[in-house]
Simulated assay, not measured.
Amino acid sequence: MAFKILIAIGAILLMVGVYAFIIEPRRLSEKHYLIRKNKERVLDISEASEMFELESEVQIAHISDLHFSRWFKPRRLKKTLRSLREAKPDMIVFTGDLIDDYKKWPVRQTKSLILALKQMQAPLGKVAVLGNHDYKSDGAGFVKEVLESAGFTVLINQELFGSNEEISLSVAGVADPSAKNAQYYYEATLAQWQLLLLHQPDYISQVKNLSMYDLVLSGHSHGGQIRLPKYYPKTDGAKTFTDSLYLPKEETLLSVNTGIGTTHLPLRFGVPPEVIYYHLSSKTEAFPEYVNPFDFKALIKEEKAKKAANKMTAKDTLLPVPTAKKAHSKANEDKIVDMSLFRRRYHQKTKKRTGS
C-alpha cells in the first residue's frame, strides 16, 4: 500500500514537473486594461478589447524579462509576435532583462534574436530600458546594441516625446540600479500622458515627483515565477510590488509585468508569461462602479451584434464591466485586483445564491 502511495506521489510530481518545465512557460497570457486620466478604477477589457476602440486613443504593448539563454531561444517569441501582430499596438515598451547572462550567451543566436525583435512593429516606435541581468557580466553594451539594431530606442536616464493625431506621450527611462547611475528625476513636459519605465518596481520609492507620471511600467519580479499555496518567492527590488496593478499615488498607476522568460530555473508554475496592453483614454471622469449582477458573455454577444449593425456609438463603448478595486492585503493596500479573480469570485457567489 505504501509503495503504491509513493508511486502515486511520484507520478503527480512528474506531471507537475512536466507542466512547469514544458507547458506553462509556453503559455501566453494577454491582458488588456482601459485606463482613463482618472485612475480610481481601471477596466479589465481582456475578453472584449475590440469593443473599446472608440474610447481608446492609443494602445501601448508592454513586454518584459525575456531572459534569452540556452533554455530560451529566439524562436520562443512566436506567440508573443503573433499577439503583437493581432493587437497592432501604437507603441511597444520593453522593461528590461533581454538576456539572462552575457557570459553564458550563445553568440550564434545573436542574429536570430535581432531578426525576431525586428518583427515587433509599432507606428509610434519601440522603447526599452535595461534590466539588472542585462548588466550582468558587463553585457549592457551588447544588449543595447542588439536592441538598437532591432529598432528599439534604449533609454538610459533619458526621455523622449512622441505623438499622433490624437495623443501625445512623454516616456522617461531609468537606468537599472545595478548600473549605479540611475536618475529618478525628470522635468514634466506638455505631453498629455507621462510614462516612466523602471525595471525594478520597488525603486519607485526613489522617484520624488512620482505624481507627475500617469503610468509607471516595470518588470523584474516574474511574479515569483513559481507559486504554490505556501510558497511564493519574492525578488529583491520587487518585494513590495510583485505583479498586476497598483495605485501608489492618486494620479499614478504602477504596472508590474511578470515577464515572458525564466531565470535560475527554466520553470513557471502559477505565473504564465504575459503581454499587457494599455488602452489610454484622455477622458477625465472616473469609470462608474457597477454593482448589479451581469452576464459578461451575454454582454459581449450583444455588443458584437451592435458593432456588426454599425450602430455602436461612443456612448455604447462604456460597458458595465466589473471595475478594479483596491485589495486590502497586508502586503500592500494599493494593489488593484485582477479582474479574472473578481469574475471568479462573482460566479462563486452566484452559485451559492442559487444553491447550485
Rank of each mutant, 00 (worst) to 15 (best):
Q183C: 15
D97T: 14
E165G: 00
V171F: 02
R41H: 14
P273R: 08
D334V: 07
N310F: 14
L43Q: 11
P74I: 01
N310Y: 12
L215Q: 00
E250V: 15
S255G: 10
N292Y: 09
K351N: 03
L196Q: 07
D334P: 01
V58W: 02
E148I: 11
L318F: 10
S221W: 00
K180F: 03
S244E: 09
K335I: 04
E40Y: 01
A2Y: 05
Q158E: 15
D101S: 09
R227M: 12
Q348K: 08
A172W: 07
M339Y: 01
T350G: 13
K315D: 14
S49N: 11
T350V: 09
L117W: 13
I22Y: 13
K307I: 14
T354I: 03
L6S: 09
A191E: 13
E285H: 14
K39H: 06
M91S: 03
I260H: 01
V127E: 00
W71Q: 10
A61D: 01
E159A: 00
P266W: 08
D44G: 00
L265Q: 13
L169E: 03
A305W: 06
P266S: 12
K306A: 11
S69G: 04
A309E: 15
K301R: 11
E145R: 04
F161C: 01
S112N: 15
M15N: 07
G151R: 12
E303S: 13
N157P: 08
I5V: 10
S149T: 01
S64R: 12
R345A: 14
N38S: 13
L124S: 08
P272L: 03
K297G: 01
L54P: 00
R268N: 04
S356W: 10
T354C: 06
M1P: 03
S83P: 08
A20Q: 06
Q158C: 07
N132T: 11
A2C: 01
E55N: 07
V58I: 04
R26E: 10
F294L: 15
L34D: 00
I336M: 15
R76D: 15
L6Q: 03
S46F: 06
L14C: 12
Q194D: 03
M51C: 02
F269M: 05
V146T: 13
G139C: 08
P322Y: 08
L195A: 09
E57D: 02
H199Q: 06
H264S: 13
G270F: 05
P248S: 09
D101Q: 12
D176P: 06
G219D: 02
I300L: 14
R345M: 10
P89S: 11
P177K: 07
Q158N: 10
F152I: 14
P89D: 10
L319V: 01
L198V: 01
I204G: 13
L197G: 03
K126V: 01
D97C: 10
R353P: 00
K249V: 02
E250S: 14
G96W: 07
L265P: 12
R85Y: 02
P248A: 09
M212S: 09
P266F: 11
G219I: 07
L247T: 05
W105G: 03
P293S: 02
A128E: 07
G224C: 09
V171R: 08
